[in-house]
Each structure stands twice: as C-alpha cells, then as structure tokens.
Nucleic acid binder design. Structure first.
Lengths: 129, 129
DNA sequence: GGCAGAATGAAAACCGTTGTCAAAACCGCC
DNA sequence: GGCGGTTTTGACAACGGTTTTCATTCTGCC
C-alpha cells in the first residue's frame, strides 16, 4: 500500500520549497486525507533513503524535505522569507571543498552548502509595503 | 558569578572539535564540577550570542559548539571520525554564494558551508588497523 | 475465503532543549 | 559583619519533533 507514500510525495512535488513532516501532515489532513503522522514520517524516510527527496535541518532542529528536480548533486538557494527554492550547481564549490580537504590531508571529502537570501518578489513586497 | 560559564568555555577552548551540551556537561561533572545541565545550556547560549563560540547542528539535530580561534567569518573542515576540526577561509565560496544569489535575483545573501572528511591520522589508523 | 507479510496509526517512549521557580551566591552599602 | 536587591544556579517539569511499539487493517496470492 503505497498510496499514502505517494500522497506525501505529491505534496512535496507540488511544493516550491522545503516542507516539514508536520507541515505535510497538516496539509494532507486539511485536504481530507486519512493519514497518520507516523506514516508521513515513514514515507519521508523511505523517500529520503531512495534519494527521491532532499533533507535539510533547519536552525531549530526540524527536518525539512524537498523533491528536487535533479537526482544529481546540487545545492539550494532558499528565500528566507517565502521559502522559494532554486537548485543551483556549484562546480567551483565542489573543487574548492576538495582542494581545502586535500590541503589539510583530509580524504573522502563531502560537504554541505546552502545559500539563503531574500528573493526578488519578497524584496519588492517588502519595499512596497 | 561567571565561574560556571568560564568552566564551560574552558572545556570548549581545550577541545579540538565541536562538542555537544550534554557532552560538556558530562565532562564537567566527571571532573568533579558542581554544575547543572541547565547552566551549561545557558552558558553556551550566552557564549554563542556573544559570538565567542560557533554553533552547528548535527545531522541528528543536536547542537554542537566550538570555540573558534578567529572571530571573523570562516568555515569548518571536520573529520567525521575523530571530530578534529580545522578552520578554513573560503573567499572563493563567499564570492560564489553572492554571485549565485544575485544571478537569481536574491539579496541579503548568507550561506552555510561545512566540509567533512577523514583526517590524515584517522586515515592511517584505518589503513593500519 | 483464508493466509502471510507489509502497511498503518494512536499512543507512548525518547531525547535534546527550554521554562519554572525557589534556593543560593553575589553585590554595593551601611 | 550584617542587610536588602539583584543575579545565578540547578532540580524538575514541560515542550516539541521524532521514533518506537503494537494491535489492527490492508494487500497480494492461493
């Protein structure tokens, strides 16, 4: 029975930015879906394990999820106001991380890079209002 | 009465990598200090507010703290095995983040960048043992 | 219809963190 | 040294997101 899991993924696919589990749960319930919070968590976990969604930790420790267009390595440019997210490639950063690691004798380098800002529409809303 | 707070900072200063609140608490108690977990959290919070320590969230949602040598903006190269941490500057990354943001019409760009790897000594230990 | 195994979800457990609040420590002052 | 007023402390409870438990429900298969 994967229908719940599909429902969870659908919410993510139709979302512009990162969403929390509780958030997704609330939306599904509001839409009349019969689903438990546990199932939402399980669905998100298995989607994340399958590499179908990206996971991030917010500053207050909440896990947030996003169905990204590309399955390849990328980073995120996130509007800190509306959550609008753009997937960005950063070959320069990849190289930099490798170089920095090598320089200090580190191997098996991985890295996390997230960029935050205020997107164009939020900026104009702010200046208008 | 800042003695507890100093004790907390001392632990961080003498630590090579990032430490969790519970971790610091355990070390202080093990060393015979009379201190409560609440106080450790408060000390860490105020140290972080004062910019005297850097805070990070681990993948499992725990906050970890480190007394960094420089007060200026920098990133971390962390050994995922022993926690050994090197502070690294990344002007190229700073520029890249700004450029990526501007390219998509984002303003007030900030970013988080952490690099993980296996440090030299851990690598040799692993290959030796 | 009946069965084995997977999926579900309500409730409880977990765990790091934060809030509460009374006791203790500290301060300037006399 | 003794006294108020403020600050710090810490045991404990509360909080919130996440995970586990476990009995029930569903699914595919015969």
């Amino acid at each position: 029975m994967t229908s719940r899991r599909e429902a969870v993924r659908d919410v993510l696919v139709q979302s512009e930015g990162f969403r929390s589990a509780q958030d997704i749960y609330a939306e599904l319930r509001a839409g009349g879906a019969k689903i438990g919070l546990t199932t939402v968590y399980r669905a998100l976990q298995s989607l994340a394990d399958a590499g179908q969604v990206d996971v991030l930790r917010t500053d207050d420790g909440e896990s947030v999820y996003r169905a990204c267009a590309t399955g390849t390595h990328h980073h995120h440019l996130v509007c800190r106001r509306c959550g609008h997210t753009v997937e960005v490639a950063g070959p320069a950063v990849e190289r930099w991380a490798e170089a920095v690691g090598a320089e200090h004798g580190f191997t098996s380098i991985t890295h996390t890079v997230e960029v935050f800002g205020t997107c164009g529409s939020c900026a104009s809303v702010a200046s208008a209002g």
